[in-house]
Computed example of a mutant assay.
Amino acid sequence: MVARRRKRVVRDPEAGVPSPPGYYAIPIKFSEKQHASHYLYAREHSVRGGAPSAWPQKRTLFVLNVPPYCTEECLSRLLSPCGTVQSVELQEKPDLAESSKESKSKFFHPKPISGFQVAYVVFQKPSGVLAALTLKGPLLVSTESHPVKSGIHKWISDYADSMTDPEALRIEVDTFMEAYDQKIAAEEEKAKQEEGVPDEEGWVKVTRRGRRPGLPRTEAASLRVLERERRKRARKELLSFYAWQHREAKMEHLAQLRKKFEEDKQRIELMRAQRKFRPY
């Protein structure tokens, strides 16, 4: 058998803490009562091959193994002695595709992450990243001046935060719709300018001006469409409009009932004739 090659683990010579290759271990504790330390693994964020990145180079710290009780505010407070923290963003997993970040909504967002996370910490100066990589700790997440809620207090706080403010929601929706309308208007204006202009090979682009992508139907609109179709079919068919049509329909129904009655009588007689047990 071929022995499996074990992944090389770097050990901090001063603290004796194992860490992944290229990462530095930063010890933290939830509070002073906690004896064991939890370790964050950090390194300077970099992109291979000089690809464009959504995070500023030389000023972004990439952090692994962030516990669930460590929020963005806590992480910013723990790293603030290293320098001014510009922004902190927690994610479930690292960004595989480097792309521009869209602003997150306070109301329309996926489920909160319940497990360990990764973090991107952006400092105002590159010296903040270098200082963060030399932290010794242990750093305290919950202190008397900045307590972190846990247990039932955290559940109550999460429930209170889940209540939506109608006015704030209306403002965010209006802002989004204004930006969306401006985007559609800019696309239509661009399509108008490009229409009728031949390209390098002499082809002329044909567009549909004034048409917007269709919105999904609501339940009331779907019911109205179904009602219109039903009325249209009723007008086309006009069944049993005259009195003689009623009489013919009734007579045909009676004839079918009589025919079925005679067939049932013949079937019963046949079953009696084939019966072997005769009690009388």
Rank of each mutant, 00 (worst) to 15 (best):
P27D: 04
I28F: 03
E200P: 07
M271R: 15
R212C: 09
P94I: 00
R275N: 15
R5E: 13
I28T: 01
V129P: 10
P81T: 00
R211F: 03
T71K: 14
V121L: 03
E227C: 13
P147I: 04
Y41S: 12
I171K: 15
L223T: 02
A234E: 10
E98S: 09
W244M: 13
R228P: 11
L254H: 08
R11F: 09
K93Q: 14
R211C: 05
L257Q: 10
K232H: 04
D174V: 01
V118H: 07
S19I: 02
P112W: 02
V122H: 01
E248H: 06
S31K: 13
L64G: 08
F176A: 15
S105K: 05
T60E: 01
V129H: 04
N65F: 08
P18S: 09
K101E: 05
S127E: 15
A243C: 08
F261H: 09
E167M: 10
F123C: 07
L79N: 00
S114P: 02
P138L: 06
M251K: 10
E102Q: 07
R267N: 15
V204F: 01
F116R: 10
R228D: 12
R8D: 02
G151T: 02
P166F: 00
E72F: 09
F123G: 01
Q256N: 15
A97Y: 14
Y24G: 08
R247K: 12
R4Q: 14
R4F: 14
I113F: 08
Y23W: 13
K259L: 12
K190H: 14
S87K: 03
A273T: 12
P94E: 05
P110A: 02
S222Q: 12
V17G: 03
P112M: 04
